[in-house]
Design a protein around this nucleic acid. Sequence first.
DNA 1: TGGGAATTCTCAGTATACTTCTCAACCACG
DNA 2: CGTGGTTGAGAAGTATACTGAGAATTCCCA
Lengths: 156, 156
Amino acid sequence: MPLWRRPGFLVRRLHQIHGAMFAEECASFDITPVQYAVMTTLAHQPDCDQNSLAVEVGLDRTNAADVLRRLARQGLVLRRASGLDRRRVLSRLTPRGTTILEAMQGAMVRAQQRLVAPLADVEREQFLATMLKLIEANDPTLPPRRANGRPTQAQK
Amino acid sequence: MPLWRRPGFLVRRLHQIHGAMFAEECASFDITPVQYAVMTTLAHQPDCDQNSLAVEVGLDRTNAADVLRRLARQGLVLRRASGLDRRRVLSRLTPRGTTILEAMQGAMVRAQQRLVAPLADVEREQFLATMLKLIEANDPTLPPRRANGRPTQAQK
DNA sequence: TGGGAATTCTCAGTATACTTCTCAACCACG
DNA sequence: CGTGGTTGAGAAGTATACTGAGAATTCCCA
């Protein structure tokens, strides 16, 4: 099976390409795609614990904690222990985090669109639908479906 | 733009899922997808220098050097300086590397097929074609096309 | 109420992936 | 020649991603 017929290989290359595009569009902010996804989720679910956040964004718990620690270091996120359950660490965006999230929105959307820009509308929708189908069919950790059929609620 | 409509987010999740599947299928070998891709390329291009290999496999050259160093540590690859150009480090599979590459073939193919197993034949082919189109359209580092229209020659 | 089970997070270790800086070797032009 | 530009590697630093081990806390049931 040649490299270019291996789905995993193609997905890896696409992942790389998107990372590069995101970095280009968002160079002035020094925020990575994963960090942006975490910030997006925190904007909708303030004071989220790390486990829930990891599930939402599709991260390993350990990795989610790493990302949050780096965001906290940059002053974009505030982490503090929960009063109700002292095992938990709750995170929320700081005002600066919210500002940067909003300022980056345009660049993020451009990066997303550039990746699939070579596709016609129909093919693009088909492509997104196929990826969604593969993720939902293959990811055992995926949360149960909500009413609208998407794994999570709509966001911004 | 919600997470689940962002092409980059979906690609990242798919990349993760494939990594997990590959690890499952190939657990007994302790070889990662990237290491396997490098070994595949070395099987077809013995005594390849690190730069050419990085281009073939779609890696950064420093990263390719890291991967080769780990493979050499496991005794699967032999690295030695070129006689003609002493800047170059040439790599080739050891006999043990060749053996393991062949022994893993079945597991690797299973991992690749599992990722796209939820798709019907037509949709699967469409999906691969779309990914290929996106990579070729978006990757500035891609080598010039060969006669057969694929970026590199056919492999195993 | 007591104690084991489950949950939540941390820490350590490793692999991928990229950037930037540095150095050595090659090559081509004058 | 020989000097200067190009190219191939290495080293350092950072982010993502996962595993396994461990600690603290909470939960639940007997």
